[in-house]
Amino acid sequence: MQQLGGPSRYAYTDIIAITGHFRDRLGQGGYGSVYKGILFPGNIHVAIKMLINSKCNGEEFISEVSTIGRIHHVNVVRLIGFCSEETRRALVYEYMPNGSLDRYIFSSEKSFSWDMLNMIALGIARGINYLHQGCDMQILHFDIKPHNILLDRNFVPKVADFGLAKLYPRDNSFVPLSAMRGTVGYIAPEMVSRSFGVISSKSDVYSFGMLLLEMAGGRRNADPNVTNSSQNYYPSWVYDRLIEQQVGEISVINMHELEKKLCIIGLWCIQMKSHDRPTMSEVIEMLQSDINVLEMPSRPFFCDGQEQVSALDSYYLSSQLDDIEEDDE
């Protein structure tokens, strides 16, 4: 695998040395912990993810690592190496000095310009599209969210967290229900109920749409702390504002053109039925197009009036903040 340019294999003793006995922890999640490390020679900074509860055996793990290790795209975090020694599993990634996207879009102190946000959105879309279309195997991420988008020193976005990603033949549009994973608030409806369609690459499109709306709104889509209760669920609120502007009603908000563009594309991506959503390649075209050529999508199911809030709505809205504490550790 290494002769073919794949990731390097490290012994567990190497991992201990690289991390300085796990001295500098960058974060923690359900998969395990991430530590900062330095590769010698060259003083190359890396991020090492120590996996816990890895369900696949050693051969399966190495097979997945070899596939993911061949990914080379400017908008995907590069896998440098791995460790598979008895029950110990680790992934060695390039280090991203500017951290994750959520540190910036949810903080007024670290806000980006609209041009920068549009550029970041386009980069993320290209990265996800590459995973879907650019590899021998289709890689479905299933956990696209701001926390899993990392930024390099020039704020180029890179899709991260492949510790739990799933690999499928590109011509196989059907994904088993056992593949379900993700974070509440970004999970596509079909991941909860098959009545909304089959699990596929369109499930990542839905998650990207939720991420895009949060980038545009500068806030979490479901925020119980918003003082105006009608604005608690941002996708619903912004959809109504855009419709008001479309029919010429006086709106209380003055939206930047790029803000409006990101919102319209995001609303297309979160359509409830998977076949109504664009592909990631179509999303890229939309992000590169002029806002005047974009049509408003149908009202997403979650944007219906309060009297029609469904059980699935309640599931999303009441559980939105479940993973936030874990992400922010």
Rank of each mutant, 00 (worst) to 15 (best):
G5A: 12
S8C: 11
A11M: 07
Y12E: 00
Y12K: 09
I15H: 12
I16F: 11
T19Y: 02
G20A: 08
F22L: 11
F22H: 08
R23M: 06
G27P: 03
Q28Y: 05
Q28E: 12
Y35G: 01
Y35Q: 05
K36N: 09
I38F: 11
F40S: 15
P41C: 08
G42M: 10
N43Q: 15
H45R: 13
M50E: 08
N53T: 11
N57R: 14
G58P: 02
E60K: 11
E64G: 02
H73I: 10
H73S: 08
V74F: 11
V77R: 09
V77N: 00
V77M: 10
V77C: 06
L79D: 03
I80P: 08
I80Q: 05
G81W: 03
G81F: 07
G81T: 04
E85N: 11
E85L: 06
T87E: 14
R88H: 15
V92S: 02
V92H: 02
E94M: 09
M96H: 02
P97S: 07
S100P: 09
Y104A: 08
I105Y: 00
I105Q: 02
F106D: 03
W114C: 09
W114M: 06
M116V: 15
G123S: 10
I124L: 04
A125E: 02
R126S: 07
I128K: 02
N129D: 15
Y130A: 04
Q133G: 13
G134E: 02
H141E: 03
H141I: 06
F142S: 04
I144F: 04
K145Y: 01
I149T: 04
D152N: 10
V156Q: 06
P157C: 05
K158L: 12
A160W: 03
D161V: 06
A165L: 07
Y168D: 08
P169E: 11
P169Q: 05
R170I: 09
S173N: 06
S173A: 13
V175R: 08
V175G: 02
P176F: 09
R181Q: 13
G182W: 01
T183P: 00
G185L: 03
I187A: 01
P189H: 07
E190P: 03
G197F: 12
S203I: 05
G209R: 00
G209I: 03
M210F: 04
L211I: 00
L212Q: 02
G218H: 04
R220P: 05
R220D: 03
N221E: 10
D223Q: 05
V226P: 07
N228P: 09
N228W: 14
S230Y: 10
Y233C: 01
Y233R: 13
Y234Q: 04
P235K: 06
S236C: 05
S236D: 07
L242H: 03
Q246P: 02
V247K: 12
G248W: 05
E249N: 11
E249I: 13
I250H: 14
I253A: 14
M255V: 07
E259F: 08
K260Q: 00
L262Q: 09
C263W: 05
C263I: 05
I264G: 01
I265K: 00
C269Y: 01
Q271S: 08
S274E: 15
D276E: 09
T279V: 15
E285L: 10
S289I: 04
S289G: 10
F301K: 13
G305T: 14
Q308N: 15
S310G: 05
D313F: 04
D313Y: 03
S314R: 14
S314A: 12
Y316L: 12
S318P: 01
S319F: 08
D322F: 10
E329Y: 10
E329D: 06
